[in-house]
Computed example of a mutant assay.
Amino acid sequence: MYRFLLTPRWLGYLALTLVAATVMVFLGNWQLDRYRGRTAVNERIDAGATMTPAPLRDALPAPTGGAGTVGPAPTEQLTWSRVTATGRYDSANVVLVRGRTLDNKVGFEVLTPLVLADGSAVLVDRGWIPPVPGAGATTQPRVPAAPGGEVTVTGRVVGSESGGGGVARRDGTLEARRIDIAKLAKQLPYPVTGGYVLLDGQTPAPDPAFQAVQIGHTNNWQNFGYVWQWWIFAVMSLVGYGWVARREARRLAGLDGPDEPRDRAAEPASPTSA
């Protein structure tokens, strides 16, 4: 009854079905890996909110090169951990990162190098400020002055961003589209650590003009939904092949009903006309 499945055409159908199902299973596994990775990021973000700040060098090793060089990037496990550092802000090398969104408003994040006792610096994201009212989105805002003297900061360790073009100095202020530490370091007169600190506390207190940059959780449940979507599609493709094969077998067997052939001999004879 199912001997037709061994014909070249149906063997081709079977091969295509198995390939499609295999690809869908792999796509589901890939989304599962993304789900696990994003879940781990969210767990680190949550853990960092309550952890006691550790010394900066526990998460960001000191750079070993000269001016303009960058130290090792933070490890995945230490990204979003909470650290503390003490130094002096270098107000001559403030960095404005444009095109940053907070509460659906586009403004600037302000990074200021914190020069440490060993002569290296760590970039500190002091917060978000809105653009100048009535001016264009690229017009430089008034940046509150960084406190002078010794400053102690606490915040989250964040890795360098990539892309977004170069770094330019306009009216004495560095501007960038992304926080690419390697590019920013080339504009600075000291070695720079390989990650930056997203400020959540400072002594003396930060200027109230700054708004805290929000840390968003990754949408890991979307990936979890994709896992099941791809796996269900894989099962459906195999079930679909079986359904089509059964339908073809019934057609070749001349089955009219759902399970058995109709018995023509058992049908009542048509009445003859008088």
Rank of each mutant, 00 (worst) to 15 (best):
M1E: 01
M1H: 07
R3M: 08
L5K: 09
L5E: 02
P8T: 08
W10P: 14
G12T: 07
G12D: 00
G12C: 05
L16K: 00
T17L: 05
T22R: 04
V25C: 04
F26I: 12
G28R: 12
W30L: 04
R36P: 15
T39G: 12
V41E: 10
R44C: 09
I45R: 04
I45V: 15
D46L: 02
G48Q: 05
A49C: 06
T50Q: 12
M51P: 06
P53S: 05
P53A: 08
A54M: 14
P55I: 08
R57W: 00
R57L: 14
R57D: 15
A67Q: 02
A67T: 03
T69H: 07
G71P: 09
A73W: 09
L78G: 06
T79L: 11
S81F: 12
R82K: 12
T84Q: 07
A85H: 02
A85Q: 01
D90I: 02
S91P: 10
N93P: 01
V94W: 07
V94I: 14
V95R: 01
L96D: 00
G99A: 10
G99K: 02
T101E: 13
L102E: 10
N104D: 15
N104L: 14
G107R: 04
F108I: 06
L111S: 03
L111K: 03
T112Q: 01
P113C: 05
L114F: 06
L114E: 03
L114R: 04
V115Q: 00
L116E: 04
A117V: 14
A121Q: 03
A121T: 06
L123Q: 03
D125S: 04
D125Y: 00
I129W: 02
P133K: 12
G136F: 05
A145W: 15
A146D: 05
G148K: 11
G149V: 15
V151M: 04
G155S: 09
G155T: 07
R156Q: 11
V157C: 01
G159F: 12
E161F: 12
E161P: 00
V167P: 10
A168K: 15
T173A: 10
R178E: 11
I179S: 03
I181Q: 07
A182H: 09
A185V: 04
A185R: 00
K186G: 14
L188E: 08
P191H: 06
G195R: 08
L198P: 01
L198K: 05
L199Q: 06
D200M: 11
A205H: 09
D207M: 08
D207I: 10
A209Y: 11
F210L: 04
A212L: 01
V213S: 05
V213N: 02
V213Y: 01
Q214W: 02
I215R: 14
T218N: 12
N219M: 04
N223D: 14
G225I: 11
V227S: 06
V227H: 10
W230A: 01
A234C: 08
A234W: 08
V235K: 07
M236I: 15
L238H: 06
L238Q: 03
G240I: 03
G242A: 15
A253L: 15
A253K: 10
E260S: 10
E260G: 01
R262V: 15
E267M: 13
E267Q: 11
P268K: 10
P268N: 10
A269M: 10
A274R: 13
